[in-house]
Amino acid sequence: MKPFTRLDARAAPLPLANIDTDQIIPKQFLKTVEREGLSRGLFYDLRFDDAGKPRPDFVLNRPEYAGAGVLVTGDNFGCGSSREHAPWALMDFGVTCVIASSFADIFYNNCFQNGLLPVVLKPDEVQDLMGECQGGNHMVSVDLAAQTVTSPSGKVFTFDIDASRKAKMLNGLDAIGETLSAAADIDAWESRRTLTHPWLERA
């Protein structure tokens, strides 16, 4: 996993609540055996019309937001399906930070597996930031170590993040490798479990 430390990037405002993972990446793009290349399906129904042509008014199609690395959006972002294709599609598109007033659990968790930083700010702070990003300057700075987001006009918002998740993001740590360092604990636990729950062992 690529570490996330600090990001200076354009931020695209998407002022909608409850954006579900079906909207982030629709079903037809899930029939892949790869993690890469999913940006073509990102927000497909919002980005493209029925003829497959880009909708010029959708924020990620507007030239002033080209190359956006941050998305600023409403409540409960990423609800619905557990598909990790959602963070993969965002990352593949170049978005490595999503700022919202709240996230759905599974999506939030999936972000941390991929080096995509989900930042929770207070609703009025998100409104404030969203408003600024709809203006002429869309550059924001996200500093994970300091836990701050700096708005285009220089306002600084702080955010909370779980310490262990933060450390993994900063260092790009592999969760499986870390867990396997406790393999002896897992072995011992399984041995005890075999005695207490013998019916779970399949012949």
Partner: peptide
């Protein structure tokens, strides 16, 4: 509960999940 694909890989490899 549901998990993402990275966690599927984690469970396949370790038969455990890291949780809060």
């Amino acid at each position: 509960h549901g998990i993402g694909t990275s966690e599927v890989e984690h469970v396949l490899a370790t038969q455990t999940l890291r949780q809060k």
